[in-house]
């Protein structure tokens, strides 16, 4: 008795994996050429774990730590930005390159187009002020609240940092408590400590 399953089993070929990867690459190319690649993503090995990087044609839209669940983040991007989302590493080459430089002490500032559509309102204005905290230094949640125009919104600064769609690139890891303790971090406290240590080491 021939079933669909047994039929497909007979046709399974190890070459199919390679063919599909070639077809995927061609699809990415054609999608980009037709302006259909709304979200491109790749992953990058870093000292703070495998980061997910995603970009729209406007710029880098998301950096995610493993703890956020990369599959979950991709599903969120499909829903909130566009389901036309493909694994397209080349689109993220500049971001990956600058992150590599950052983690090897060769870069203190990121020079990348950013798409901050995932942050709105006060959270967005908090993120706009974070790049003012220089490499190797820290600022308190209260200082950032004041800079963002609402000195009382210290907790809101905390939640803006906790939901920063572009950690590492937009340096929320440089925001600490007024008493000098670390506070929280979207990538976990070990990652925050590692980034601050990296920036403190020449």
């Amino acid at each position: 008795m021939t079933t669909p399953e047994s039929f497909r089993h007979v046709l399974a070929s190890p070459g199919d994996v390679e063919t599909l990867s070639h077809l995927h690459a061609r699809l990415v190319e054609q999608a980009a050429a037709h302006g259909l690649l709304d979200v491109a993503y790749r992953t990058l090995d870093t000292p703070v774990g495998v980061l997910l990087l995603a970009a729209t044609p406007t710029g880098l839209v998301r950096v995610a730590y493993p703890g956020e669940g990369h599959d979950h983040v991709l599903a969120q991007l499909a829903e909130r930005v566009s389901p036309r989302l493909l694994h397209a590493p080349a689109r993220l080459d500049p971001a990956a390159h600058q992150l590599d430089e950052y983690f090897s002490h060769h870069r203190h500032r990121f020079d990348l187009a950013l798409d901050l559509r995932l942050a709105r309102g006060f959270r967005r204005s908090v993120l706009d002020h974070l790049p003012e905290i220089a490499y190797g230094t820290t600022a308190s949640y209260a200082t950032i609240a004041a800079a963002a125009g609402n000195p009382k919104a210290v907790r809101a600064v905390g939640s803006a940092c906790a939901t920063n769609p572009l950690p590492v690139i937009v340096p929320c890891h440089r925001v600490v408590r007024s008493d000098g303790t670390l506070g929280g971090y979207v990538g976990g406290l070990d990652a925050k400590r590692a980034l601050l240590r990296l920036e403190a080491t020449p």
Binding site: Y41, L74, A75, A78, E79, P83, R84, L86, H87
Partner: peptide
Amino acid sequence: MSLPSFEQVV
């Protein structure tokens, strides 16, 4: 319920 990413579809 929302659409899966196109990557997932492929």
